[in-house]
Simulated scan of single mutants.
Amino acid sequence: MGKLLTVFTPTYNRAYCLERCYQSLLRQSNRNFIWMIIDDGSTDDTKQLVEKWIEEDLIEIKYVWQKNQGMHGAHNTAYKLIKTELNVCIDSDDYMSDDAVEKITDFWMRNGSNNVSGLIGLDADLNDNIIGTKMPENLKKSTLFNLYNKYGVTGDKKLIYRTELTRSFPYPLFDNEKYVGLAYKYYLLDTKFEMLLMNEVICYVEYLPDGSSKNMYKQYVNNPKGFAFYRKELMKLPFVGKKFKFKQAIHYVSSSFIQKNRAFIVESPERYLTVLAIPFGLILYLYITSLVLHK
């Protein structure tokens, strides 16, 4: 039987914490998976570390090095190369529960089909506390968008997708920028199918000081084209209301000011809402840029 799941890990100069992720994969009760490491241009000893693990030959590891493109560029590469039916991203500073692969495999074998995008599991912190809230126990399927915006679920969740679908909607790469919101792809996949819900902890999460989530304001200022693209795409979603679109328009205006794009109104998919959002977007622009400049 071929392997069902690829665990992929984008990494950039994270040799100091990657060992914990590796050890969690060695502890898996089900070894029917591939670990794919996408090294996004690391200059530390990540390559040497991974080569040592490959020589140990305890689990199947595929290592890919590329010039630095940012998290979304690493995801693009992974989705092009993954051959298994399912894939899940485990960040380099996170690790899997000891029975995560077994839970995913068993759940998918019982419930999976071509009529869903994949399944959603839980993240927990290092003290075994669920990140945010659990998913409704009586709810079997949902889109990711509805999970947060209709059912009131909070906190990061672990997304396991069908690989053939994740090849859709590749993330764009912008010159001199390294960030596009990953949810761009996830929300577009919501237009195709719902996802199965599995209230089981799959991943343990630690938000390190050099992680993207801890540096979001700086990311916002340094990647305005990527952020503007992301907000425009969210405004186009067919299942969102005016309130959601207006929030995206505010961020779109702010990012447009940062990149000095004078054509932002013409380029907006929601021109009227964008015009209304200008004063709020200006305030957001001033607030975020002042925070970054004074750090």
Rank of each mutant, 00 (worst) to 15 (best):
L5H: 05
V7D: 01
P10N: 04
T11Y: 01
N13C: 11
Y16S: 15
L18D: 06
R20E: 15
L25D: 10
L26P: 04
I34G: 07
I37Y: 03
D39E: 06
D40I: 06
D40C: 08
G41R: 02
D44T: 00
K47F: 09
L58E: 15
K62Y: 10
Y63I: 07
M71P: 09
A74H: 02
A74Y: 04
N76Q: 07
T77D: 04
T84Y: 10
I90Y: 04
D91E: 15
S92C: 15
D93M: 06
V101D: 05
V101G: 10
N111W: 10
S113W: 05
S117A: 13
I120M: 08
D125G: 03
I130F: 02
I131M: 11
T133M: 00
K134H: 11
K134V: 07
E137F: 00
E137R: 01
K140M: 12
S142D: 01
S142I: 01
L144E: 06
F145C: 00
K150F: 00
G152H: 01
G155S: 06
K158F: 12
I160T: 11
Y161H: 07
Y161W: 11
T166L: 03
R167N: 10
R167Y: 05
F169P: 01
F169C: 02
Y171M: 02
P172A: 04
L173G: 02
F174W: 05
D175A: 14
N176K: 14
Y186T: 07
Y187S: 01
L188M: 13
F193E: 10
F193Y: 15
E194H: 00
E194F: 04
L197R: 00
L197Q: 00
N199T: 00
I202T: 13
C203D: 14
C203N: 15
Y204G: 02
Y204W: 04
V205C: 12
E206A: 14
P209W: 08
S212Q: 10
S213H: 12
N215V: 08
K218C: 04
V221G: 07
N222Q: 14
A228H: 06
F229V: 06
L234Y: 13
M235R: 05
K236D: 01
L237M: 09
P238I: 06
G241Y: 00
G241I: 02
G241V: 01
K242C: 07
F246H: 11
A249V: 05
A249I: 08
A249L: 03
I258Q: 08
K260Q: 15
N261I: 07
R262C: 14
F264I: 09
E267V: 08
S268P: 02
E270D: 12
V275P: 09
A277P: 03
I278P: 08
P279S: 09
F280W: 09
F280D: 07
L284N: 13
L286K: 12
T289E: 07
T289M: 09
T289F: 09
S290Y: 13
S290K: 13
L293T: 13
H294R: 15
H294I: 15
